[in-house]
Design a protein around this nucleic acid. Structure first.
Lengths: 155, 155
DNA sequence: GCAAATAATATGAAAATTCATATAAAACCG
DNA sequence: CGGTTTTATATGAATTTTCATATTATTTGC
């Protein structure tokens, strides 16, 4: 029926391109949880920062930016807002006064810990759906990949 | 030495959280290629759109938005700019005049095809570094995951 | 065939993000 | 030391993105 407009390659590129699959899976999977985070009153970047701080409370801004996968000046402004909301507080490091360390407030920590419980449950559901062998392997695989990618352009 | 400030959980959360690993790997891997795309004069969302159109030339805006993982009104504006630059052209669908189909220009197609060659090479390098068994498995695994995620909230 | 509901795209206005750079503190070096 | 370079964070201005909704076209149900 429609042969005239068929201009596509014999094998599709994008839907089987590794970087596309990673982005797509990340997007869709995260979107599910982000709805939950928003329901808890957090915007996505705020949830990410809280989750990172749950692991490394008191991290300096640069470290937190790298860990939370955002550009530094963006993180600075997100911290501004979170501080106003009382989720975190800034404290300049006495050992090196250029550094600003970011700490969870009690409220911030409570919220983070609560959401982390939910995040683990959500993750478990995804892995469960994925099924046995793959579910065992996917995280180690991604960890390897991440280490390799970081190794190339050390940072 | 530093026990006073140790407030972190025994097991870190974020760096072993599936959704974090996905986002981190996607970010870092894509960043490598995005440098290349920018060197070719494209911004990241433009590269994504070109890659999608290489597979589905003439896709309607809604479809293209979903495929390229962006919100519709954002895509509309990106297409505006790409059209001005002569990378794509819009054509309203005679069968349903609400629809706008987006087509690659010759220039757009050339650029897309050239970059896709590079993208495949980049992907091959990443998979090669990952090594045998995992390299074989990662894409099918992500495809399964994507299908499952799409299945939950059909769209 | 018409009114209401639905669908596809575009757009205004607000908000977030980026990029370059300012500011301030520490490290380095002759 | 004093000057220069580097590092850490913040900020102004431009751009991009989002959110809600307008606009236009089609479908549905009566």
């Amino acid at each position: 029926m429609n042969d005239l407009k068929k201009n596509e390659p014999d094998q599709p590129f994008v839907t089987s391109y590794l970087l596309y699959l990673l982005a797509a899976v990340s997007d869709r999977a995260s979107a599910e949880f982000h709805d939950h985070a928003r329901a808890a009153g957090l915007r996505v970047p705020e949830w990410r920062v809280l989750a990172c701080l749950a692991d490394e409370d008191g991290a300096m801004v640069t470290r937190l930016a790298r860990l939370s996968l955002m550009e530094q000046s963006r993180l600075t402004r997100i911290i501004d807002q979170m501080a106003v909301r009382g989720l975190v507080r800034r404290q300049s490091d006495p050992e090196d006064r250029r550094r600003v360390r970011v700490f969870l407030s009690d409220e911030g920590r409570d919220l983070a810990l609560r959401l982390i419980v939910d995040a683990r449950a959500h993750e478990a559901r995804i892995l469960d759906d994925l099924g046995g062998a793959d579910a065992q392997r996917i995280k180690p695989m991604l960890e390897t990949l991440l280490a390799q990618l970081d190794g190339r352009t050390p940072g």
